[in-house]
Amino acid sequence: MAFFEGKNMTAGYDNGPDIITSCNLNADRGEIVAILGPNGAGKSTAMKVLLGLLSLKSGNVIIGGEDISKLTTQDRVKKGISFVPQTKNVFSDLTVRENLEVGAFLRMGNIENVIEDIFDLFPILYEKKSQIVGELSGGQRQQVALGRALMMKPSVLMLDEPTAGVSPIVMDELFDHIIKIKKNNVAIIMVEQNAKQALSISDRGYVLVTGKNKFDGSGKDLLNDPEVRRSFLGV
């Protein structure tokens, strides 16, 4: 059984149709899992359900053997699930350092060494630590967003399109950072538009179509699967 698991998840908005049906996703610590699929496949919805921003109609969300399906988002965050939204994922009026501090509010005790770790991981943030985040470039902001999410020492990190709207060079840099984060024994689940690049750094991937699991397998297998290549990777 995987560390973090969404089992047979069915959910939709209010009384509307189900966006995801019997969807299964899981991730172990120290693993990068990519969720891919065409627009409207329910990737973001699946992530919202895992996070508790949207409630389940049926199914379960389990972390470390504990069923957290009924918990609120705030309580799930306390269980060690950290989330980086696609947009508005930093406090743009606060400095870099303050962003990191806010990220650690759930942790008690000394946060200085954790901040040091984040600065080691993202050296650019150390240089810009006193700068207002709103003044940073897109790629640097994404690093702040990742840094903030890592401050609570999460066991699960969920990323919603971490490379949306950044240049290809910055994208490679961000993926490098994500690989580094994985080494800290964190389960990383990410939704990505850049399917090929995402699969190349992922241990496993899921392809969702109309809210159902269509394909899954290791990153490499999915990359080489002719049907996946044809329908989703555009090659």
Binding site: V102, L106, R148
Partner: peptide, 23 residues
């Protein structure tokens, strides 16, 4: 102060503040 910073964070980005465990 920590409370002051959480106030500013909440004012800046409410959703993210909630995700950071600010009450």
């Amino acid at each position: 102060t920590k409370t002051g910073k959480s106030m500013r964070a909440y004012s800046d980005n409410e959703d993210l503040a909630l995700l950071s465990g600010i009450d």
